[in-house]
Design a protein around this nucleic acid. Structure first.
Length: 492
RNA sequence: GCCCCCAUCGUCUAGAGGCCUAGGAUACUUGGUUCUCAGCCAAGAGACCGGGGUUCGAGUCCCCGUGGGGGUACCA
């Protein structure tokens, strides 16, 4: 029998990282075992379910590269089947009618089956109605809910993560499977759907641990094979509480727009609650698929640590080929600057070498794009601390050196080693460390105190652009433009 | 309230009774490399929640406590 797993999100919001991790574990298992990974949208909550949420979830999975088999199922399409299953339970005497109206005080009290006492009351009340009477009242048009009659005994299963689990049935209330308005409840719908879809392994968050015995009882009552259950731990926020909106970015899409690579996200999520058993941390999805197993999934919930995600992203960034990075950087560039893909056309080789130089010192695609702007447009922004540190401590000397350097570079062959010889040579003549020359130069070329190696920056910019920027710096310094900004800052 | 789950550095984790003087990663600190940043290299600090058992021996098994989490619906 081929393994079939499913991911069953409710379309009541974006794709949450917790949901994504659950989806990932399902996907890893299916892909590793030659099984099928099916998507089921649990859209039975009409009020909160929205098509755009379904879209967002599909997009999130798509971005992560978690491809599902076949078309997505929609739980709402199975309502007739759910109802039929509930009715069959009733026919077979495994469920009973509950005429109590929860909207009335009496009904609500009798329906509060939250403790032993309430459980007993619900059952007693229902049993006080004979089957005959029940049928007569139903035929007369009185509305009712259908409650599953939980049998005596104990329900146990072998959880693929938690091991042997057993629950006294006495602790389980007679749950409603069909509401008085004729709609199925969650536990019935899930069991009915999973059985209908031939799901063999149910891998879900361990917040469903307490639903499991109820569902097993339903499988058994309906005469269906019980799947393997695996309850994976939840993901927590930095404060140890269940990850939620107030922790900041919890949507997978947030990380997409922050310049995290899908491979890095997948790698990171896989490492939350699972480890391969050795010290390997950076893995591509093939390796994850090959090494993943439910047996190594932890029972302990884990905290989502953005810092580690970013580190991992840097690792993946370093391992991703420039031609795969290119479209991502370009897209981001268009968002944050006026650089168009037209501009980039015709200078692919140059553009690629730029990306290669920047990626080393970047942790996200956004970092690369932000830094790239300097080389792609001419409206430089000068970083104030950089200007103050490398120019304004001694503006006159700075001007002198930049001018001398500009003159010297004008005649040098525009090639990395020749440039290096020229610049280092000049520093020697001036009897100062190379940094004294290079730092002011860097600020003039990039406006920033940090950049790739200065000789790379020079060749990247090309002679004309580089000299032009130096001129601009010299002029500005002479006119005191930069001193002015400093004064402003001092006053502020 | 009741039921259930969980518990190793701040964080992610290794650890299936002696291999643990508790390993790795991240984050942090310091030093080195270098034109800056990133990186890289080296070093440092940092954990078995507490108490009882069991055992020759416990991070590892059992019990209690504590802490955290989940559930407790005619929500999903």
């Amino acid at each position: 029998m081929t393994m079939r797993v499913r991911f069953a999100p409710s379309p009541t919001g974006y794709l949450h990282v917790g949901g994504a991790r659950t989806a990932l574990f399902n996907w890893l298992l299916a892909r590793g075992q030659g099984g099928e990974f099916i998507l089921r949208i649990e859209d039975t909550d009409r009020a909160r379910s929205k098509p755009e949420h379904t879209e967002a979830i599909l997009h999130g999975l798509d971005w992560l590269g978690l491809d599902w088999d076949g078309e997505p199922h929609f739980q709402s399409e199975g309502v007739e089947r759910h109802r039929a299953d509930a009715l069959r339970l009733l026919d077979e005497g495994k469920a009973y009618r509950d005429f109590a109206d929860p909207s009335t005080a009496v009904g609500a009290a009798s329906g509060a089956a939250t403790d032993e006492e309430g459980r007993r009351r619900v059952r007693e009340l229902a049993e006080s109605v004979t089957p005959e009477e029940s049928r007569v009242r139903a035929d007369a048009g009185e509305s009712f809910a259908i409650r599953f009659r939980v049998p005596a005994g104990e329900t146990s299963w072998e959880d693929a993560v938690h091991g042997r689990r057993a629950v006294q049935n006495a602790a389980i209330p007679d749950l409603v499977v069909l509401r008085r308005d004729g709609t199925p409840t969650y536990n019935l719908a899930v069991v009915s759907d999973d059985a209908d879809m031939g799901i063999t392994h149910v891998i879900r968050g361990d917040d469903h641990l307490s639903n499991t015995p109820k569902q097993i009882l339903l499988y058994q009552a309906l005469g269906w094979p019980v799947p393997v259950f695996a309850h994976v731990p939840l993901i927590l926020g930095p404060d140890g509480k269940r990850l939620s909106k107030r922790h900041g970015a919890t949507a997978v899409g947030d990380y997409e727009s922050r310049g995290i690579l899908p491979d890095a996200m997948v790698n990171f999520l896989a490492l939350l609650g699972w480890s391969p058993g050795d010290d390997t941390e950076v893995m591509d999805r093939e390796e994850l698929v090959a090494r993943f197993s439910l047996g190594r999934v932890l029972k302990k919930s884990s905290v989502f640590d953005v810092k580690k995600l970013e580190w991992l992203n840097g690792q993946h960034l370093a391992r991703t080929a420039a031609d795969r990075l290119e479209p991502l950087v370009t897209a981001k560039l268009q968002l944050i600057s006026g650089v168009s893909s037209d501009y980039l056309r015709g200078r692919e080789v140059w553009y690629r070498s730029l990306i290669d130089l920047l990626r080393v010192r970047a942790r996200t695609v956004d970092d690369i794009a932000r830094q790239a702007v300097v080389y792609l447009t001419d409206d430089l922004e000068y970083d104030e601390p950089a200007v103050r540190k490398h120019w304004l401590k001694d503006p006159n000397t700075t001007v002198d050196r930049l001018e001398a350097l500009r003159e010297r570079l004008a005649d040098v062959e525009w090639e990395k080693s020749a440039l290096e010889t020229a610049i280092r040579g000049m520093a020697e003549e001036l009897e100062v460390g190379a940094g004294k020359v290079i730092h002011p130069l860097r600020v003039s070329l990039t406006g920033m105190a940090a950049s790739p190696g200065i000789f790379d920056v020079l060749t990247l910019l090309g002679r004309d652009r580089a000299l032009e920027r130096m001129d601009r710096a010299i002029e500005g310094l002479k006119r005191g433009t930069f001193a002015g900004t400093q004064n402003e800052r001092t006053r502020a």
